[in-house]
Design a protein around this nucleic acid. Structure first.
Length: 597
RNA sequence: GGCCCCUUAGUUCAAUGGAUAGAAUAGAAGUUUCCUAAACUUUAGAUCCAGGUUCGAUUCCUGGAGGGGCCA
C-alpha cells in the first residue's frame, strides 16, 4: 500500500474514532505540502469543523495526534490554520524508493485488456503538412503513448481526405500547366509538388475571375462560372463515375502525396497501425441514416434532405443527408465510427484529435451516435486543440504565412546543430552520431514546445524566439538525462553495478533527496491524470519538475566525492531512477533522450 | 442573430475550490581546484472589470469588456 493510501486510511480511522464519523478513505483529499512549510502531505481541516464541533486548528491537532500514535508512516505533524501538515518518517522514503527501483517498468500501469483507438492525423491530399498539423499529430501520438502506459491496447489511425474538389483542383492545374512534371523530374517531395499545383489552380482561377468581372459579370457569378473551376467540378463527377483516366491521374497524384507524407511522418517519429481513406468511407453511413429515419431518430424535409433534431439537447437541427441523397461529412463520420467498432471487438473508446473549429461537429456526432443507441458513444472523445498563431496573427495560406512542417523541423535541427557545435559538445562523436544528436535535440525542442501547453488553449509560435534551449524546454530535460548518463558511466568504471541499485536503510537522506523520491514516486499518478484528461502537458510539466529538482540535487550534493560508499551508492541509485523516469516520461511525449550532449 | 472557447508578471506558459498565485524567458546580482555552466543561487515583477455562492474563488454562477471559432 502506498503512502497516500495509508494516510487516507489513518485519517478515516481518526475521524471515526475521534468524532464517530464515517468516510471512505479514498475520498479524503491529500495534497503535497507547499515548500515553505514542514511536511510532505497536507490535509485540509476546514470542511471538518461541523463534524468535530471544533475549530479547524483544534481539529488538525486532534487528527495529527491520532496519526502520530496510530499510523506508522507518520513521524510528526504541524498545524497552520486549517492545514494539517503531515511529516512522513525518513525511513519510509528509503523503503519507498527501494520498492520503485525494484520494478523494471515503474510508471506503467497493469494491462487492462481493452482497446482504445486514437485518430491523430486527418490530412487533405492537396497540400503539404504545416505547423498546425504538427501540434495535432504530436498531441495525438502522445495521447496514444500515454494510453498505452495506462494499460490500454492502442490502435493509432489516420484518416486521409483523399477525395473531393480540393484534389481535383490540383489535378486540373497539373493537366494544364504541368507538362508531365513528376516529383523526380522536379526534384520536389510529392506532397509539395501537388501543393504547388493547388496554388497554380488558385492563381489561374483568380485571373479568370478578374477577366470575367472585367467583361461585366458580377463577382459572385464570376466565382461560380470561371472555366477552370467548372473543369475541376467536371473532374470530380468523372472521378465519382470511376472514369478510368481521371481515376488513374487521381491515384498517381495521391501516390506522390503519400510518399511525401511518409517522409514527413518518419522525420516526426510517428507511425500508424491502420489507415483509412475517405474514398473508401465516404459512402458509409447512408444505411444508418435510413435506419435512423425508420426508427424516428431523424426526420425528412419536403426536399428529401434528412435531418436530426437536437433542440432538446440544447443544439440546433443538423443535416445528415442532402436532398439529392448524397452524403455530408456527418453521414460518413457516423458510418466510419460504427464500422470501426465492428472491426475492433475489444474497442471501448475512440479519441479524435481534431482542431477546436470542429467542436460543434463532434458534439453533434456523439449525440447522434447516442440517439442511434450505441452505448460506446459516451466513451468517444474529441481531443480538441486550439490554433497555433504566429506573431503576425493567424496562419493563412493565401498570404503565404503558413509554416511548413518539413521546413520547420529542418530549421530546428540545424539550429540545434549550430548551437551544439558552438558549445563544443560533440567531441568524440562521429558524423552519424552527431547528426542523430541534432535530430534528437531539434525535434525534442519542437515537440516539447508544442506539448507543454494545455491542448485546448490557442498558443503563440514565434519562429525566431519561441524555441529556446534553456529553461523549461525539451533540451534542458535531455541535458539532465545526459548528465545522469555520464554519472552512470563513471559509476560503472568504479565498479558500481548500476543495474540493481538500492539505498541502504542506515543512510541519512537530505531534504532534496526526499523531495526527489517523492517526485519519482508520482509518475504513475501523473500518467493516470494525463490519460484521464487527455493532457500530454501534465507529463511535460512532470518531467520538467523532475529534471529541475535533479539539477538542484546535482549542484548541491557530491556523488563520488563522498567518504561513505553507501552514500555514493544511494546517490547513484537515485540518479539512475531519475534517468529512467525522464526517459519513460519523455517517450510518452514522443521525445528521445541522448546519453551525451 | 444563435451557440462554443479563451483572457494570469514586459513576454510565453503553470496552478483536483485551499496557505504568501508557481515556472521560464527578458532585467539586476552572484556561483567553475569538484560528477557536462544547455546548469545552480539570490532579486524585482501578474489573476480583464462588476456582482454572487463559499469558512475560503485564478478556479463555480450571473452580467459586462476584449480576442478567437462554429452555424443546413
Amino acid at each position: 500500500m502506498d503512502i497516500v493510501s495509508q494516510l487516507q486510511q489513518g485519517i478515516a480511522e481518526g475521524l471515526k474514532s475521534l468524532y464517530d464519523h464515517e468516510v471512505s478513505a479514498s475520498d479524503l483529499g491529500l495534497q503535497p505540502t507547499r515548500k515553505e512549510f514542514e511536511g510532505t502531505y497536507t490535509f485540509v481541516t476546514f470542511p471538518y469543523g461541523k463534524i468535530s464541533k471544533k475549530n479547524p486548528m483544534e481539529t488538525g491537532e486532534d487528527l495529527g495526534t491520532y496519526l502520530k500514535e496510530n499510523c506508522e508512516v507518520v513521524d510528526g505533524y504541524n498545524v497552520v490554520k486549517g492545514f494539517l501538515n503531515i511529516e512522513v518518517s525518513a525511513s519510509i522514503w528509503t523503503s519507498l524508493f527501494n520498492q520503485i527501483a525494484a520494478k523494471p517498468n515503474f510508471g506503467a500501469h497493469a494491462r487492462k485488456g481493452e482497446t482504445v483507438m486514437v485518430e491523430y492525423s486527418s490530412p487533405n491530399t492537396n497540400k503539404p503538412l504545416h505547423l498546425g498539423h504538427l501540434r495535432n499529430i504530436f498531441l495525438g501520438y502522445s495521447v496514444s503513448q500515454i494510453y498505452d502506459a495506462f494499460g490500454y491496447d492502442v490502435v493509432k489511425v489516420q484518416i486521409i481526405n483523399d477525395r473531393g474538389i480540393h484534389i481535383c483542383k490540383s489535378m486540373v492545374a497539373w493537366q494544364k500547366f504541368g507538362n508531365g512534371e513528376t516529383p523526380t523530374s522536379a526534384e520536389l517531395k510529392g506532397d509539395k509538388l501537388v501543393g504547388k499545383y493547388y496554388v497554380e489552380f488558385d492563381k489561374a482561377y483568380k485571373a479568370e475571375i478578374a477577366q470575367l468581372v472585367e467583361a461585366g459579370k458580377p463577382k459572385e457569378v464570376a466565382e461560380k462560372e470561371a472555366p477552370i473551376l467548372l473543369e475541376a467540378q467536371d473532374l470530380l463527377r468523372k472521378w465519382e463515375a470511376k472514369e478510368s483516366d481521371t481515376y488513374a491521374l487521381w491515384e498517381k497524384m495521391n501516390g506522390w502525396v503519400y510518399e511525401g507524407f511518409d517522409a514527413t511522418y518518419q522525420q516526426m517519429g510517428v507511425d500508424f497501425d491502420k489507415l483509412y481513406y475517405e474514398s473508401n468511407t465516404y459512402l458509409l453511413g447512408k444505411e444508418q441514416v435510413a435506419e435512423g429515419l425508420k426508427a424516428g431518430h431523424f426526420f425528412a424535409k419536403d426536399d428529401g434532405s434528412v435531418w436530426v433534431d437536437l433542440t432538446e439537447e440544447g443544439l440546433d437541427q443538423k443535416i445528415v443527408q442532402r436532398s439529392d441523397g448524397t452524403a455530408v461529412y456527418m453521414t460518413q463520420d457516423i458510418g466510419t465510427a460504427i464500422q470501426r467498432f465492428k472491426e475492433y471487438p475489444g474497442l471501448i473508446k475512440q479519441v479524435y484529435t481534431v482542431g477546436n473549429e470542429q467542436d460543434y461537429h463532434f458534439k453533434v456526432l456523439f449525440l447522434i451516435l447516442k440517439k442511434l443507441g450505441y452505448k460506446w458513444a459516451e466513451e468517444c472523445y474529441h481531443l480538441s486543440y486550439g490554433m497555433v498563431d504566429l506573431p503576425s496573427g493567424k496562419m493563412k495560406s493565401r498570404e503565404g504565412t503558413v509554416v511548413d512542417a518539413d521546413d520547420l523541423m529542418n530549421e530546428m535541427i540545424s539550429t540545434a546543430a549550430h548551437h551544439t557545435k558552438e558549445l563544443g559538445k560533440i567531441d568524440g562523436f562521429n558524423e552519424e552520431q552527431a547528426r542523430e544528436l541534432y535530430d534528437t535535440i531539434g525535434l525534442g525542442a519542437l515537440k516539447y514546445f508544442l506539448l507543454k501547453v494545455d491542448p485546448k488553449k490557442r498558443m503563440l509560435f514565434d519562429p525566431q524566439e519561441s524555441i529556446e534551449f534553456h529553461g523549461n524546454t525539451g533540451p534542458f530535460i535531455q541535458y539532465t538525462h545526459a548528465r545522469i548518463s555520464a554519472i552512470l558511466r563513471r559509476a560503472s568504471e568504479l565498479g558500481i553495478d548500476t543495474e540493481s541499485l538500492s539505498i541502504s536503510s542506515d543512510i541519512q537522506l537530505t531534504q532534496t533527496e526526499c523531495d526527489l523520491i517523492y517526485l519519482i514516486s508520482e509518475l504513475p499518478n501523473k500518467i493516470k491524470l494525463a490519460a484521464e484528461d487527455y493532457l500530454p502537458s501534465v507529463i511535460a510539466q512532470y518531467v520538467y519538475d523532475l529534471a529541475k529538482e535533479y539539477n538542484k540535487f546535482y549542484a548541491e550534493l557530491a556523488i563520488f566525492g563522498e567518504q561513505d560508499q553507501g552514500v555514493t551508492t544511494a546517490r547513484v541509485a537515485l540518479s539512475a531512477q531519475v534517468a529512467k523516469n525522464i526517459k519513460f516520461g519523455m517517450s510518452l511525449l514522443g521525445i528521445h533522450v541522448p546519453d551525451r550532449m
